[in-house]
Amino acid sequence: MIQALVFYLFATVTVLSAVMVVTSRNPVHSVLFLILAFFNAAALFLLMGAEFIAMMLVVVYVGAVAVLFLFVVMMLDINFTALRQGFQTYLPIGLLIGVVLFVEILISLGAWSIGPEMIAAASAPTPAPADVSNTKAIGKLLYTQYVLLFQISGLILLVAMIGAIVLTLRQRPGVLRQTISEQVSRRPADVVSLVDVNKGEGV
């Protein structure tokens, strides 16, 4: 009973703050609502007993992603009213599509049922929850059954990194940089030369 109550509380707040993300006028507010939505989602995971994912959500999404968003939004000078100009003209058709899609998905979800073979199929790769802790279970699966996917994720992140560097890093000529290794490896013999200078003459 209490569990259900708590679930509906968190779920409602999640949905409402998601709506606010889209509709609020101030972009900073949007990001803050986004953080709120993340927190509530994490709480929902906790309710399901998935504490590891809940923590991940808080650490990664709230701690890193959303804060980064906040920085970006605050640093970039984006004219949001200009961005919204198309909003009014496309609102009706957008709404229409949204509503139609929503209704269709509702209809299909209404027919949802869990067959026994589905439960069997779904629980096949996971160990019994009582045996292992949440984190350990994930770890066991991630590094055995799903090692391929894990490795591909690594590649995807690598590509993302390369991409970010390729698209943004600019090496400007004429900018002074400190290169520690060069500084350290400098020897006097290479750069200093002693010259005997006679009196009354220049170098």
Binding site: Y90, I93, G94, I97, V100, E104
Partner: peptide, 9 residues
């Protein structure tokens, strides 16, 4: 993007 969504719908 609209065209894609309309297509799906």
């Amino acid at each position: 993007a609209f065209a894609m969504l309309i297509g799906v719908v």
